[in-house]
Design a protein around this nucleic acid. Sequence first.
DNA 1: TAGATTGTTAATCGATTAACAATC
DNA 2: TAGATTGTTAATCGATTAACAATC
Lengths: 216, 216
Amino acid sequence: MSQDKPVSVSHPTIRRLPAYLNILRKAQDENKTHISSTFIADKLGYEPIQVRKDLAGLGITGQAGVGFDAAELIDAILGFLGWDNATDAYLIGAGNLGSALAGYKGFKDYNLNILACFDSDLRKVGTEIHGKKVFGMERLAELIERTGVNIAILTLPDKAAQEITDKIVEAGIRAIWNFTTVKLDVPDGVIVERVDLAASLALLSRRTAEAMKNDK
Amino acid sequence: MSQDKPVSVSHPTIRRLPAYLNILRKAQDENKTHISSTFIADKLGYEPIQVRKDLAGLGITGQAGVGFDAAELIDAILGFLGWDNATDAYLIGAGNLGSALAGYKGFKDYNLNILACFDSDLRKVGTEIHGKKVFGMERLAELIERTGVNIAILTLPDKAAQEITDKIVEAGIRAIWNFTTVKLDVPDGVIVERVDLAASLALLSRRTAEAMKNDK
DNA sequence: TAGATTGTTAATCGATTAACAATC
DNA sequence: TAGATTGTTAATCGATTAACAATC
């Protein structure tokens, strides 16, 4: 693509794309070839116009009166997110949460492949967790450099987070999916995306408290 | 409080509160009694004005030239989120992710207490996971009714999500922390807060793809 | 043709940021 | 008093929604 227009798609839009993808795939399984924005919006409780705006951002056009070609749309979303090729990642910290993610089957829908795990607990090193080898932390740099993996999933204790981050960034990691509470300090160009469970719980708690107050 | 003003605090603000709470607690551990919006903003990479706006929403006032009273602010956030009293929850679906959450120590910071787990796997029923009893699904309604627990953490397979939701809502559950991919259909007044890992991964992937393209 | 749906342009809404006087 | 910081009011920014002509 020598002539990419400067696509700038908002974060809220990007966050909604996986949900669209799920619906499209399900519809395709039911042999639907075309999907309208109304259909997608209905399933998700959004407005059709929002779906169309989102899709427009990907450079996709639909057909008036008909909707969007499901296959084409799926490809566009996968391509846009870089999910059209398998991406390898290392998982760092094979505790409760890390093990759960190592065993999570759903990542294959997004072409994310956890290559191996790392842990500082020597009793885990050398074992396998959900079929993924566990290496000791001392091998992190070496393996990142050798395999060229550039995504790390951080599921280790907060207190180790920054130190290990420095190490893996140094070794060549370009993107970190951060499940710790720590605001990681990284050089420009390294991407950090944090999963903020506490934020989600805060919203649940507050909304619940309000709902309970209302019906007293 | 007979005279509550109609506090309406935005969702983005609510989502930021736990991070403020963490910082305040850490500062208090270091014997700081007063914290400025600048201090908090610095730690999180926000603007001080945003912190002040957020806190203003809670009805908290600081002291010009000094900052906010840490203890008072912590109490205000805890109270606002309903985290000042322990809240019991049931965890439904003791698979990989469910087990990880059942063992997550961090919830005590938010006064969330997982009372017990439920699972349809009879081999798990009767055992304990991280010290929490596992009950069979057939006991869900009975126990929800008897104990009056009103929060459920849903970590079961997508295909069971709606059916179980109907059941637990019927039994009295008022709020669901939804870790499935399903958009749950619930009656008015029942709160659903979904943790959307795929959305987070989408953002990570897209930002990474862009960053890699830039440095070619 | 009639009905469904798109995509564009403009309006609205809500959140973030800026400016600055008031306060400690 | 000087420096730091708050809280208010207004400006800006960005995302969602509305309206509607064009298209299949």
